[in-house]
């Protein structure tokens, strides 16, 4: 094993790690924000909206993320330049970079998977609690904010922690569309130094540590949440 490349690429690796963490946090945030309405309309929304949400979840969960990513980056990316006037618009610098496409694709993916989780979570909150909240004089939005959503999140918190790990494990795909995140930097090192294993092993080790940290942090929060009352 030869590790003499490590000091040379140390800063680049740190940069890659930073991009990876950014991707995880941003995409988990966007995805979660979209997942709540996606789950909610399937439980309580009008039929047509529920069907759209269900279709969205089915498509996202039924196709590989790699294909979604390429479809969005290469597919949409090749259509945008043909739209007249778009090169002069303020969006053009963003449409030319790879990063926004990755954020978009990963956020959609998180939204699809977590949306399905949230549908089950919302459906799992006992009806009596919602009726009680309503009887207390809360409006529909207050019921959602103070009772329905917290109770739903409480029930599926371990699953959400698992989804966060899955999001981390999905980020290396971004390297296939030229983003220099952790895995991308590793690939770069392999090409520069002709070392086959060492960079991969190092990257794998970093992912193991990151997964461990996510699991521990989420477990800490899980223990601080009051246990859901058994029905």
């Amino acid at each position: 094993m030869v590790w003499d490349w490590l000091p040379v690429y140390f800063e680049q690796l740190l940069g890659g790690l930073w991009v990876t963490l950014q991707l995880v946090v941003i995409c988990a945030g966007f995805g979660m924000a979209a997942a709540i309405p996606i789950g909610l309309v399937q439980v309580t929304g009008p039929k047509w909206l529920a069907n759209i949400a269900l279709g969205f979840c089915t498509v996202i969960r039924g196709t590989p993320l790699l294909i979604q990513l390429w479809l969005i980056y290469y597919g949409l990316g090749s259509v945008f330049p043909s739209i007249p006037g778009i090169r002069e618009s303020v969006f053009w610098p963003y449409l030319r970079a790879a990063y926004p496409y990755a954020v978009f694709a990963f956020s959609l993916s998180v939204a699809g998977y977590v949306g399905e989780v949230m549908r089950g979570a919302f459906a799992g909150v006992p009806k009596g609690e919602l009726e009680a909240a309503h009887a207390m004089g809360m409006g529909p939005f207050t019921v959602l904010r103070r009772v329905w959503l917290p109770r739903a999140l409480q029930n599926v918190f371990p699953t959400l922690a698992g989804e966060l790990v899955l999001t981390l494990k999905a980020t290396p795909l971004a390297a296939t569309i030229t983003i220099q995140e952790l895995f991308g930097v590793g690939t770069q090192i392999r090409q520069d130094t002709y070392r086959v294993y060492e960079p991969l092993l190092l990257i794998a080790g970093i992912y193991i540590v990151l997964t461990g940290i996510i699991v521990l942090v989420m477990r800490y929060f899980e223990n601080r949440i009051p246990r859901p009352a058994s029905v």
């Binding site: 790990v165 981390l168 494990k169 999905a170 980020t171 290396p172 795909l173 390297a175 895995f183 590793g186 086959v196 294993y197 991969l200 092993l201 990257i203 794998a204 992912y207 193991i208 997964t211 461990g212």
Partner: peptide, 16 residues
């Protein structure tokens, strides 16, 4: 270990 490492990394590692 297998469940903590991204599949993409594992595939390259195991492949080579």
């Amino acid at each position: 270990l297998i469940r903590a490492v991204p599949e993409l990394v594992l595939i390259l590692l195991l492949f080579y």
